[in-house]
Amino acid sequence: MEQPINFFSGFSFNDLLFLGEAAGRTILISILSITIGTIFGCLFGWILQVSGTAGAVSVGAFLDIFRSVPLIIQLILFYNFAPMIGLSLDPFASGVIVLSIYAAALVANVARGGIEAVGRPMRRAARSLGMSYWQDMRYVVWPIGLRAVFPAWVGVALGVMKDSALVSVLGYVELLKASQILITRTQEPFIILTVAGAFYFALSYPLSRYSARLEERWSQ
């Protein structure tokens, strides 16, 4: 399809494809960060839970840094300082790393809450049946804790997806960056931001619907 490229034109079908492709990158970076962040977050959450006050102070303080420093500052700092320690990372890799750590810090608290949602009596009952520590974790704590904190985890996941827009400051062309590029060219911010917003909605709506359905099923 040969279309004359016309700068400063209106919003075209090709632009929609361009945004769609960028949305794909938003999905990619979000899924990667949420997955990695969730795995490490569960690990940190477990450490926070088993190590009691000592762990809560040291690991907790470490995670607090990533929870409280604005993500945009973390991204810029990491992207600019990583080369100094010999890491030359492209914007995508930097974004995944920073977002993953950020997600892990958020998930850690959720995971700890999940483990703590299963009281000591329940865990003793499981152990009294001959279950090992890890069997108790896998078959009792995990399913009960997961149900307890799943809504909170979905909140974190949706938040990370929206926050992935900040990776645009490193020049990674995800949904927000793509919108900015198009706005500069077409001077039609209203349409473009509406379309971008619709994309974000289309990405998060299925997840929140699905989680609502799961919660409904679990609650009966």
């Binding site: 009596p121 009294s128 009960i144």
Partner: peptide
């Protein structure tokens, strides 16, 4: 292994809700 031979019932019944 040993606990399998020692069933225990608590004041709170602790059914696995899931």
């Amino acid at each position: 292994q040993l606990r399998q031979n020692l069933g225990m019932v608590f004041q709170q019944w602790n059914s696995f809700p899931h």
